[in-house]
Structure formats: structure tokens, C-alpha cells
Simulated assay, not measured.
Amino acid sequence: MTSTDEGRALRFSEVQAEVEAGEGLADWRMMFQTLETRFATGDFARGLELVARVGGVAGEVGHTPELDLRATTLHVRLISRDVFGVTRRDLALARAISEVAGELGISADPAAVEIVELALDTPELTEVKPFWRAVLGYSDHPLHDAEVRDLAGNGPALWFQRTEPHDTPRQRFHLDVRVAPELVAPRTEAALAAGGRLVSDEHAPAFIVLADPQGNQVCLTTGLGRD
């Protein structure tokens, strides 16, 4: 493996193949530009112990994780921000983190991983994007012009979906809920049981469109079928 390959942003399908192959990545889920999991620590003291061990392996690997420690959980996000994606460095660190968590008897709960995004339908993004970037204190996405992000924190991304000009009250905001592929079916079943309806599965498995009883729409999205 060359140093160039080690620092290359991997495609979703490349990482997904290694996750599904069980090559030390069963705890993790690829979430477009990040690799994430959540560990069920049980209490804060064990969480601190895991953080300390993660810090140690991060130093050995020479890569930095993004950690969110709560009372009974530790959420770990891995990304190589120099290329704004997941690289071989992230995969190596993920495997090392899972190993130390296993040594401590701490289990991962990858099904808890999700990212909520906001999408604004607009016929012309250049007209509205500067306002939203300013009012949210966000930055331009490093790779995609039609998106602004909280690069320094964990606020939901806002992206702009092109649509035909229209008069209100047509819906303009909808939610994109990004989940691991295996969660789409149970989430859909639960939504339908709660009175929702399937609007479209034309673009599955990349995304499906659901609507609540009043017609407000949401997309359940995955990385499958995108590359």
C-alpha cells in the first residue's frame, strides 16, 4: 500500500465491503464521509476509561478520533479532514478502537448511529445559500457546492435540492435521515404503522420517501447504490 493510497478518501462501497466482510469493522457504520459507532459504556467511569484507551491507540496510529462522551455511551466519529472522507488511517484506528473496547468488555451499538440532515427545496440555491450560511454560522461544504455544514461542531447539515419554481404552500423543508442500510426496513415499518405512507421507493436503496399523515415528507437515506 502506498502512502497515497493510505490517504485517499475511500468510496462508500469500498468501506461497506470491508464492514460486511467482518474484517474487524463490524462495530462501525459508513456514513458518507465519516465512519461512526456508539459504545454502550454503562457508566461515566467506564466511558472515561475507554476514552483514555482510545487516546492511547490514536497516538499509536497517528490519527485523531472525534469523541462524544455521555453518561452511559461514547460516540466515536472518524474522518480524515484533509480529504474530508474516510481513509485507510480511519479504518486502522477503527479496528484498534474496537479491539481495546473488547478488552474492556464494552460492546458497540452501531444501530444507534444516524445523522439528521435538513434539505431546502429551491429553484436557485445561489440566491438563498448565502443567507443560510450566515444565519447558521456554517461553512461551505469542502466538496459539494449545494451544502453548508457545521464543520467545527455537530449541527445538522443543510443542503439545497433543486426544484421547479412554485408558489407556497408547497412543502419546502423536508428531513433527510441517514441510517445504516439494515435500519431502513424496520424504520419504514414503524413509520407506516404510525399512520405514515410510502411516497416513493423508486431510488431505493439510495433513499426512499415517506410522508406523515399530514403529507410532510422525509427521506430515509443510505450510501448504497451511490457509487
Rank of each mutant, 00 (worst) to 15 (best):
S3R: 15
T4K: 15
T4F: 14
T4L: 09
G7Y: 06
G7N: 14
R8Q: 01
F12V: 13
S13C: 10
E14V: 15
A17G: 10
E18F: 15
V19N: 03
A26F: 09
D27E: 08
M31N: 10
E36W: 02
F39W: 01
A45V: 07
V54C: 09
V54P: 07
V54Q: 06
L67C: 12
V76G: 14
L78Y: 09
S80F: 02
F84R: 13
G85K: 06
V86A: 09
T87D: 07
L91S: 05
A94D: 12
A94Q: 11
R95M: 04
E99Y: 12
V100H: 02
E103P: 01
L104I: 00
G105Q: 05
I106G: 03
A111Q: 10
A111G: 06
T122Q: 08
G137K: 01
Y138I: 02
D140F: 15
P142A: 04
L143A: 10
L143N: 01
R149E: 07
D150S: 00
D150G: 01
A152V: 05
W159P: 11
F160R: 05
Q161M: 12
Q161T: 13
R162N: 06
T163V: 07
T168N: 11
T168L: 14
R170T: 14
H174T: 08
V184L: 01
A185Y: 07
R187F: 09
T188V: 02
A194C: 01
A194M: 03
G195T: 00
L198V: 05
V199H: 02
S200G: 01
D201G: 00
P205V: 10
P205H: 06
P205I: 12
A206G: 10
V209C: 02
Q217P: 11
L220M: 07
T222F: 03
